[in-house]
Simulated assay, not measured.
Amino acid sequence: MYRKTIYVFQNDKPLLATVRQYERKDIAALIEVQKESFPPPFSSDLWWSMEQLEEHITRFPEGALCVETDGEIAGSMTALRINHQHYIHKHQWEIVTDDGYIRNHNPDGDTLYVVDISVKPTFRKYGLGKLMMQSMYHIVIQQGISSLMGGARMPGYGKLQNQLSPEKYIEQVVSGQRKDPVVSFLLRCGRVPVTLLPDYLEDEESAHYALLMEWKNPFI
């Protein structure tokens, strides 16, 4: 069982946070994280269902993490194992994640693929997302697999799609000329760009694009 407790900070204010595997008793709280993280205009159909969370816990509990503080679950992150060669080229979120059910999880897969990461808005300045990402890197190392990958939304791109190509937009984000809420966050977490993924997710904010990003196991 993975469990890590450390202090995180908002400016100089410390907060004791614990990253651990989520369990069945956490399901209602995990759905609440989704509701607060993805309010309208996001559809409630995008929130985790009880059935999906049951699959995460049953099929790959090591990839089902949450962060908790003062008894409240503030965020969650989910991943599955895949074979890198099957998904390195263009793919869609619903295909690579089995529409979020991860029934395609491969216990022998060489790559940890991020399905989702969510943090409640009231906790977003404490670095809890980065803390969970680092915890997933620990899982990569512990399981002896080659890398962590995932498609990053590009929510800053939708409003600029008539002015910039997606390639130019990402070039400007990586060079520091622009800031994207998701891509910039993942760059700070140590992820690096691999390739653009068109039609990755029904996501008008990102013009339906995502950026495949990777963190490689430094011990392999």
Rank of each mutant, 00 (worst) to 15 (best):
residue 168 K to H: 09
residue 99 D to V: 04
residue 193 P to F: 08
residue 122 T to G: 12
residue 171 E to L: 15
residue 130 K to Q: 14
residue 136 M to F: 07
residue 114 V to P: 00
residue 83 N to S: 12
residue 159 K to M: 06
residue 96 V to Y: 02
residue 199 D to L: 14
residue 197 L to W: 08
residue 198 P to H: 15
residue 99 D to L: 10
residue 97 T to A: 03
residue 67 V to Y: 13
residue 68 E to I: 02
residue 73 I to Y: 04
residue 67 V to W: 04
residue 135 S to M: 09
residue 202 E to S: 13
residue 151 G to D: 05
residue 120 K to G: 06
residue 140 V to D: 00
residue 108 D to V: 05
residue 108 D to W: 01
residue 175 S to I: 03
residue 119 V to H: 02
residue 186 L to F: 15
residue 90 K to A: 11
residue 76 S to P: 00
residue 99 D to E: 10
residue 154 M to H: 01
residue 138 H to I: 06
residue 127 G to C: 07
residue 180 D to T: 11
residue 163 Q to W: 09
residue 124 R to L: 05
residue 200 Y to Q: 07
residue 78 T to W: 01
residue 94 E to Y: 13
residue 119 V to F: 05
residue 125 K to P: 00
residue 167 E to D: 09
residue 165 S to K: 14
residue 105 H to L: 07
residue 120 K to D: 00
residue 205 E to Y: 13
residue 109 G to C: 13
residue 113 Y to G: 00
residue 83 N to G: 03
residue 80 L to S: 04
residue 128 L to V: 05
residue 151 G to K: 05
residue 67 V to C: 15
residue 196 L to Q: 10
residue 107 P to F: 04
residue 147 S to Q: 14
residue 136 M to S: 10
residue 139 I to F: 02
residue 149 M to V: 06
residue 155 P to C: 06
residue 71 G to V: 12
residue 206 S to T: 06
residue 123 F to D: 00
residue 142 Q to K: 13
residue 206 S to E: 07
residue 81 R to L: 10
residue 205 E to I: 08
residue 109 G to R: 08
residue 118 S to Y: 09
residue 199 D to M: 12
residue 127 G to M: 15
residue 97 T to C: 09
residue 166 P to N: 07
residue 202 E to Y: 06
residue 141 I to M: 10
residue 138 H to Y: 09
residue 147 S to T: 02
residue 119 V to K: 03
residue 196 L to T: 07
residue 204 E to P: 05
